[in-house]
């Protein structure tokens, strides 16, 4: 099968996955307990007004009609209106989504940069004290849930040393307004970003480190490593240009899975650090029966994971010249 056919097949698969995910999402949220209209009653609506509101939201339609209608809305990029905020969900979620991406993107970037380097060196110096210590450190990091890492960092760097702000994204507030540069382009923002991003980096460090190490051990057994050494190339070149370069391939696949856990982790990390992102918003929305908002947040998180899986598959084909297109 050629590259093109592979990509086409993979795109079809992507569409099916999206459809299935969307269906799960729809079913889940229709099962949600609690009357979604209770909120309107509390606001002192008359029963007639309430009926009217339900009709507006389409909640009185049969389920399959609602399903089609919701799908149609999503395709238009319309997530409906938030029950609590009384604003279009898209307006609420767009900024928070960016905030989450910036935070978790930074965390993953650091986790992978540190993990790959660390893991490569651990594999290269196998049986050394560095390797043994490294394994223990990584396993301890892996054993700590995100919120625990966050609390430890908070206690040390905020409560005890007072080096960093404890929560939020900006000292002055206004975290949800302004353009991209205004939101993320300041030292104050970086100071706020540091601890939550570090929390994520520590929490997601283990997978790339351990995987890198074990694939390094495999690759180091390969004949070509011996040849590269025999060629008189410096150790650094053999380690990074050849051994590490070959070991990185399987990490690309895991990257997608890591993004998945990072999406979940954002929920926790944002709660610990009061980060105005999508994860925290989702928890609030679920607690307040704000379906449209919770659904949108859930949908976006899932989309990121599904798209990352897709990108990872394609990247793998690009990075490894040997790959057969199944």
């Amino acid at each position: 099968m050629g590259l093109r056919a592979y990509v086409v097949r993979r795109v079809l698969q992507l569409i099916v996955t999206f459809w299935a995910f969307f269906t799960i999402l729809f079913v889940l949220f229709r099962m949600m307990p609690g009357d979604p209209t209770s909120m309107f009653i509390m606001d002192g609506m008359t029963p007639e007004q309430r009926e009217q509101r339900i009709a507006e939201l389409g909640l009185n339609e049969p389920l399959h009609v609602q399903y089609v209608e919701y799908a149609r809305q999503l395709l238009r990029g319309d997530f409906g209106q938030s029950f609590i905020y009384r604003d279009p969900v898209i307006d609420i979620i767009a900024v928070r989504f960016m905030n989450t991406i910036v935070l978790m993107g930074t965390a993953l970037l650091f986790a992978y940069l540190i993990g790959i380097t660390f893991g490569a060196i651990m594999g290269w110096w196998r049986d050394s004290r560095f390797e043994r210590g490294g394994i223990i450190v990584t396993l301890v990091a892996r054993s700590s849930p995100e919120f625990w890492v966050g609390i430890v960092l908070l206690s040390v760097f905020v409560f005890w040393l007072g080096w960093f702000p404890s929560s939020g994204m900006r000292t002055t507030g206004g975290e949800l307004g302004g353009n991209f540069a205004a939101r993320y382009g300041s030292v104050d923002f970086l100071r706020h970003l540091f601890l939550p991003a570090l929390t994520g980096a520590i929490a997601y460090l283990a997978t790339p480190t351990l995987l890198m190490r074990s694939t390094m051990l495999d690759v180091l057994n390969a004949d070509f490593i011996e040849i590269k050494k025999a060629e008189g190339l410096p150790e650094r070149t053999v380690l990074f240009k050849h051994a590490a370069r070959n070991s990185v391939l399987p990490l690309v696949t895991v990257m997608a899975i890591a993004t998945g856990s990072a999406m979940g982790g954002s929920v926790v990390i944002e709660t610990v650090f009061n980060w105005p992102g999508m994860g925290r918003e989702m928890v609030n929305a679920v607690n307040n029966n704000d379906y449209p908002l919770a659904m949108a947040a859930f949908f976006l998180m899932g989309s990121v994971v599904i798209i990352m899986n897709f990108v990872a598959d394609l990247a793998y084909v690009y990075l490894d010249p040997r790959v057969e297109y199944e």
Binding site: D223, I227, K228, H242, N246, P321, R322
Partner: peptide
């Protein structure tokens, strides 16, 4: 050096 299996003697990437 010429190794036994040249295919493995080259870095595949």
């Amino acid at each position: 050096m010429i190794p036994q299996n040249a295919m493995n003697g080259f870095d595949p990437v």
